[in-house]
Amino acid sequence: MNLRFTKMHGLGNDFMVIDGINQPLPETGLPLPAAEIRRLGNRHFGVGFDQMLIVQPAQGPEADFRYRILNADGSEVSQCGNGARCFARFVRDAGLTDKQEIVVETAAGQMTLTVTGDEQVTVDMGAPRWAPADIPMTAKAEADSYIVVSGHQAWEVGAVGLGNPHCTLLVENVDQAPVETVGPLLESHEQFPERVNVGFMQVVSRSEIRLRVYERGAGETLACGSGACAAVVIGQRRGLLDSQVTVHLPGGPLQISYDGEGGIRMTGPASRVYDGSINVTPAE
């Protein structure tokens, strides 16, 4: 099977975007076997990506499209902020819509994507979910922070659900943060039954932070939109941040806005890299 795709990125968080409307894909299950997704995600032997994004027809009348996200390890997740911005630009570039406000279905619910005149995209990420069962994580009660223990090590983290689970640690300097060692330990910690995205946040001022994120199923990425939103609302809950925050990620800045009501709004760029096609083994 020959599969057409577009390579895109949001601040270096990169994606293989597949049009499932103009080319046939299975309507149920993964469009490709997990082993094939891992092959395509390999940066030496495949296309190379953090996530694969699937554009599909909406299942209900209130949305324009359905949006699915597959990690480079073949697992499926419910939310990806940088991917959502790329999704919005892709469907416009591909002529699938000319709308500037696009409603998409995700496994976490409906999401609204707004494309501005300068091709920046604002994503309404929905309201943060603080109850442990909604993150999900195991904890006796909801709290501003939690102590997570592994062996002889312990970390204080904030945790929030944004359609996918996030925990964030405060660090003095993100350049020296133990992302490569602590990231995978927390990602697969038993307190997070669906694994977790791990953020390392340095507060620069009340309106500015630096952030690195170790994403479940992908490892450290150059940018994580939902991770940026999670870090901001966790910092706000601790009284460290204002309602408008610039988040500096390794791939570049995102603007995050949240005043405690409604959804978190994230604004940033989405870039097209190239179009291609590749032979794949479809799911049975």
Rank of each mutant, 00 (worst) to 15 (best):
G41K: 04
I18K: 05
E142G: 05
S75R: 12
A283D: 11
H166I: 08
P33R: 06
D93R: 14
E180Q: 14
E187A: 05
C80R: 00
A127K: 03
L170W: 11
P250N: 07
G48F: 03
M111Q: 14
H152V: 15
A283L: 10
T181G: 11
K7Q: 13
S150R: 13
A88L: 05
D134A: 15
T114I: 14
R206C: 08
V198K: 02
M16S: 02
Q255R: 15
M52D: 01
G260I: 01
L70W: 15
N2Y: 08
Q23R: 03
N82E: 05
D50Q: 02
G12F: 06
L254P: 12
S75G: 14
L40M: 05
E172K: 11
V198D: 02
L222E: 08
E180D: 13
R212W: 11
V171G: 03
A108C: 00
A218L: 02
D124Y: 05
I54V: 15
T181M: 07
R92V: 12
G48D: 03
A127H: 02
A108D: 00
V123K: 06
G83S: 04
P269F: 11
S226I: 00
V213H: 02
V17P: 00
S271T: 15
D64W: 04
G252K: 02
V213L: 02
I37K: 04
A154C: 09
Y67D: 10
G163K: 00
A107R: 15
D175L: 12
N279L: 14
V149P: 01
G219Q: 03
E76H: 08
R129A: 14
V103W: 10
M201W: 07
F45E: 12
Q23T: 05
G12E: 01
E36I: 00
A127C: 02
I209L: 10
H44S: 12
I264L: 10
R38C: 14
D19V: 09
V232T: 10
P282I: 01
Q202D: 04
E172M: 07
G262S: 08
V160S: 02
S271C: 14
D98C: 10
V273K: 08
S243E: 14
V196G: 01
T112I: 13
D73H: 06
G235V: 08
V171M: 01
E142Y: 09
N71M: 05
K7T: 09
L113W: 04
I54M: 11
A177F: 10
V149Q: 13
R85I: 09
G276D: 12
C167S: 05
E36V: 00
G81A: 08
R68M: 06
R210D: 14
P178V: 03
E187L: 03
V179M: 05
W155H: 05
V245S: 08
I278T: 10
G48W: 02
T122H: 01
R237K: 15
A154T: 13
V55S: 10
G41C: 06
Q56I: 12
E172A: 14
R66Y: 11
Y258P: 01
S78W: 00
E284A: 11
R89P: 01
F45C: 07
T28A: 12
T6I: 12
N164R: 00
L162W: 01
G252Y: 06
H9R: 07
V273L: 12
